[in-house]
């Protein structure tokens, strides 16, 4: 893949930009640990015995054909699935050793530790500034100085500052699709979460916007543990360090991205990454 040299090229805003390559070398332990995780929607089981360790500070890609359960799994990490009626789980997921599903878990503070970016850009119908400031506002931050700083930092990190700094009070819906998605990333990182969950963040975008988001993901990895669901194998190959291949609710293969794409152990993985099905 030709993306690797581009990632190694230093970015011009001077912020330390660990590349996926660097981060893999420096990966420091497990952020999310999944053990014997099963999930049912009503009577139909969507996830079967998932066991997986997601490493801290790198990009992990979840790939697989539609309906394989990769988004469901992602949405379990911040329990955004909770609102679905008839959802039932078994097994455990821990974040830094803390159980996510348990009676002692405060879901709200759990979600504050994880930013999430959705498939479709979903800025709130308010100003760009207020979109980014939202996670701080709900935490009761009212100090204008702190908010201004956080908004600027998040927008710079999301590579949107230059485009948006003169129109912070404009409605976010006036931005283009790619800009909206970067705004959503800025919103997700504004409260400085530990984990960034991305659910097919580029599927609604054109190739140029996709390129920008991918650059951004590369830029952000290292600072954040990023878990990304993607349909595009090229994208997984370009940005992720580890890749998990899921199929029909099972985790089929999980490992180093290069290994998964070049020397898969499983024939289903082989078929999928070579484009035989999916």
């Amino acid at each position: 893949m030709s993306a690797i040299p581009a990632q190694l090229a230093p970015l011009d805003d001077g912020i330390r930009q660990p590349t996926a390559y660097h981060v893999r070398k420096g990966a420091a332990g497990t952020a999310i640990q999944i053990r014997d995780f099963k999930l049912w929607y009503g009577h139909s089981q969507a996830l079967f015995n998932i066991n997986m360790d997601i490493e801290r500070g790198i990009v992990t890609a979840l790939i697989g054909p539609s309906g394989c359960g990769k988004s469901t799994l992602l949405r379990c990490f911040n329990r955004i699935n909770d609102v679905i009626d008839g959802l039932r789980i078994e097994g455990s997921i821990t974040l830094d050793g803390e159980e996510l599903f348990g009676s002692k878990v405060d879901v709200i503070s759990l979600r504050k530790r994880m930013g999430m970016v959705f498939q479709k850009p979903n800025p709130f119908p308010m100003s760009i500034y207020e979109n980014v400031a939202y996670p701080l506002r709900i935490d009761g931050v009212r100090d204008r100085r702190i908010l201004d700083e956080a908004v600027e930092r998040a927008l710079r990190s999301a590579a949107l500052w230059d485009e948006a700094k003169d129109r912070l009070q404009d409605n976010a819906l006036a931005l283009s699709g790619g800009q909206q998605q970067r705004l959503c990333i800025a919103r997700a990182i504004a409260s400085e979460p530990e984990v960034l969950l991305m659910d097919e963040p580029c599927s609604a975008l054109d190739p140029i916007a996709t390129q920008k988001i991918e650059d951004l993901i590369n830029k952000l990895s290292g600072d954040y543990t990023i878990v990304m669901v993607t349909h595009s194998m090229q994208q997984a190959a370009r940005v992720s360090v580890n890749t998990a291949f899921m199929y029909l609710g099972h985790l089929v293969e999980y490992g180093d991205t290069e290994a998964v794409f070049t020397t898969p152990k499983n024939t289903q993985t082989m078929d999928y990454v070579t484009g035989r099905f999916g």
Binding site: V83, F118, N122
Partner: peptide
């Protein structure tokens, strides 16, 4: 109101 706005807000840690 579209579900994705609700999800976005909840994912930000809003009650």
């Amino acid at each position: 109101v579209p579900e994705h706005l609700r999800a976005a807000s909840l994912a930000c840690g809003a009650t």
